[in-house]
Write a protein that binds this DNA or RNA. Structure first.
Length: 575
RNA sequence: GCCCAUGUAGCUCAGAUGGUUAGAGCGCGUCCUUGGUAAGGACGAGGUCACCGGUUCAAUUCCGGUCGUGGGCUCCA
């Protein structure tokens, strides 16, 4: 065995081959798909009559260990294209033939290892004994080449690391992610529920604590928008089907819309987006170039049909509230407006503690509306705005929406996962579809540009991210209960109520635990509820007019005067 | 939608090759206890074993379907 370190993906790719080798040994007749390394490990796709059971993974792992112990050499073999084709045909390797068709050149490489040979670009580690730490994780169905039209294969996921220690750490991280799951914490902290059978899947019910957090965020959101030159509007949840026809949603977005409601000989549809509503408001007046930009914001609840298999907690739902806004502006204002949105975005995300994010600019796709000149102007405005904000970004070529280029921002959470929240999209389509105009300096009619933007994305998704990011322990300004008073015995209840009143007058959200329980039990409960501050009140506190402060993260901090606690509390809120 | 797994008390989970009253812990209620920084004690109330149908003398258990959920594929705020 060599001491050289191979890149982790080479390592994993080799592990994936060993997996395929083991499957070939254990389950003859299985056909092979592809087996690449992925971000956190590797997988291999197999076509087999009977799906793999979870117990099969154990057997396969054992076989893999045998192969590793045998330390078989990965032998690279170059084969002439025609010969490869013949060999694969003889072996009945339909999927490999499919792959071969896409490989250019006259030579193809195979890697042979023991009795197992696989068409593969490589590279591989020199021999199977190099693999020190691996684990098979799960089985799942996956379409061949990711298309619903193709047959479904059985995919086995696994991961591999240089050392057992790193593997253990990875598995620990998976467990940490599981522990932080917003669905689990949402239940434990009594924030929200979903009543899939009784009320319908993908629809969220906010409980008092969750609703309170939501309202705190909304208030902050409204205040910030008003300070930053936005006006608020409200638009209805349904509109005549004709409106969605004009907007183009019936053409481009139909599969995500719920079927029409018919009444009074008219047909109405539930809104999947807020934009047409905002356009209705725009059209009520003749707008002058002097009026622009108009920035209209709305926490707009929209409904989108999502396939049953994709619903997931708060992250993927069927009814959600976007922190939406539409900016109607002139072409020459795009850059400034986008720049303003970027500044607002970093203010918002910073307020919640997100410091790391990745920006993507998506450019013109193959199918598009609008003039090339407009695309040019808008795309470069997006880039310039980013550059002037000294923001690094990546280009996603051709990934723009049909109606215009966009900026997507993904935030990174505590566990280094990326989440898409903010999106800023330039739209050439709707202003044209609704024949929007403003009167220019030249007294002629011009078409405004529309910018759609959502900073938090959807309230539901953002809450899910926050819950997992904070691990349920919301910072003081968001915590539904900020302070919990814990009287030790009944005789301390009265004093505690007075403390509560004092704190409540200062705007604090306070609760008292007057249950007939021991101090320890009350503290345990408050800790599990992740209340930022617990104030313990016993004989000593009552007689000295103090409270004993315990913080959720820092533990017991001793007794202080009530006014002192108020000062500390208010100071922390201002941070 | 497709593949696999799965649905037992408010929550987390046991359980029976088909057979009278289906269990535990937490939570909830009543009582005892009035305590000093993560579970004091006793008693009690909670279940059409997801729903519909089939097989059977008998189904929560076996079979089929439906509605959900989980992990994937695809898609996305």
């Amino acid at each position: 065995m060599s001491k050289e370190r191979y890149p982790l993906d080479v390592y994993r790719h080799s592990a994936s081959h060993i997996l395929a080798y083991a499957v070939k040994e254990l389950f003859p007749g299985v056909k092979f798909g592809i087996g690449p390394s992925i971000e956190d490990g590797f997988y291999y796709d197999f076509d087999r009559q009977d799906p793999f059971a979870t117990e099969d993974l154990v057997k396969i792992e054992e076989k893999m260990r045998e192969i590793i112990n045998a330390d078989s050499i990965f032998e690279k073999i170059e084969v002439d294209r025609k010969e490869a084709e013949k060999n694969l045909k003889d072996a009945g390797a339909a999927y490999k033939l499919d792959l071969l068709a896409e490989i250019p050149g006259q030579k193809v490489t195979f890697y042979k290892c023991g009795d197992f040979s696989d068409m593969c670009r490589g590279p591989h580690v020199p021999s199977t004994g190099e693999i020190k730490a691996f684990k098979l994780l799960s089985v799942a169905g996956a379409y061949w080449r990711g298309s619903e039209k193709n047959p479904m294969l059985q995919r086995i996921y696994g991961t591999a690391f240089y050392s057992q220690k790193e593997l253990d750490e990875y598995i620990q991280r998976l467990e940490e992610i599981k522990k932080r799951d917003h669905r689990k914490l949402g239940k434990e902290l009594d924030l929200f529920s979903i009543h899939q059978e009784e009320a319908g899947p993908g629809l969220i019910y906010w409980h008092p604590k969750g609703a309170l957090i939501r309202r705190i965020i909304e208030n902050f959101w409204v205040e910030t928008h008003l300070k930053n030159g936005y006006d608020l509007i409200y638009s209805p949840h349904i509109a005549r089907t004709g409106l969605w026809k004009t907007s183009g949603h019936l053409n481009f977005y139909k599969e995500n819309m719920y079927p029409p409601m018919e009444f009074e000989n008219e047909s109405y549809m539930l809104k999947p987006m807020n934009c047409p509503g905002h356009i209705m408001v725009y059209k009520t007046q003749t707008r002058s170039y002097r009026d622009l930009p108009l920035r209209w914001a709305e926490m707009g609840t929209v409904y989108r049909y999502e396939k049953p298999g994709v619903l997931h907690g708060l992250l993927r739902v069927r009814g959600f509230t976007q922190d939406d806004a539409h900016i109607f502006c002139r072409k020459d204002q795009i850059e400034d407006e986008v720049s303003g949105v970027l500044k607002l975005t970093s203010f918002f995300l910073g307020k919640f503690g997100f410091k790391d994010y990745v920006m993507y600019v998506s450019t013109r796709p193959e199918k598009y509306v609008g003039t090339l000149e407009n695309w040019e102007v808008a795309t470069s405005a997006l880039k310039t705005a980013l550059e002037k904000n000294e923001t690094k970004y990546q280009i996603d070529p051709g990934e723009g929406v049909f109606y215009g280029p966009k900026i997507d921002i993904k935030i990174k959470d505590a566990l280094n996962r990326e989440w898409q929240c903010t999106t800023i999209q330039v739209d050439f389509n709707l202003p044209a579809a609704f024949k929007l105009s403003y009167v220019g300096e030249d007294s002629k009619e011009h078409e405004p540009i529309m910018i759609h933007r959502a900073i938090l994305g959807s309230f539901e998704r953002f809450m899910a991210i926050l819950i997992e990011f904070y691990n349920g322990a919301f910072p003081l300004w968001l915590a539904p209960v900020q302070v919990k008073l814990i009287p030790i015995a009944d005789r301390h209840n009265e004093y505690s109520r007075k403390v509560k009143e004092t704190l409540a007058e200062k705007g604090a959200r306070v609760a008292i635990d007057e249950d007939n329980q021991t101090l320890q039990a009350k503290i345990r409960l408050a800790q599990m509820e992740k209340v930022p501050y617990m104030l313990v009140i016993g004989d000593k506190e009552v007689s000295e007019n103090t409270v004993s402060v315990r913080s959720q993260k820092g533990g017991n901090a001793g007794a202080i005067k009530i006014e002192e606690f108020v000062g500390k509390f208010e100071g922390e809120l201002k941070e």
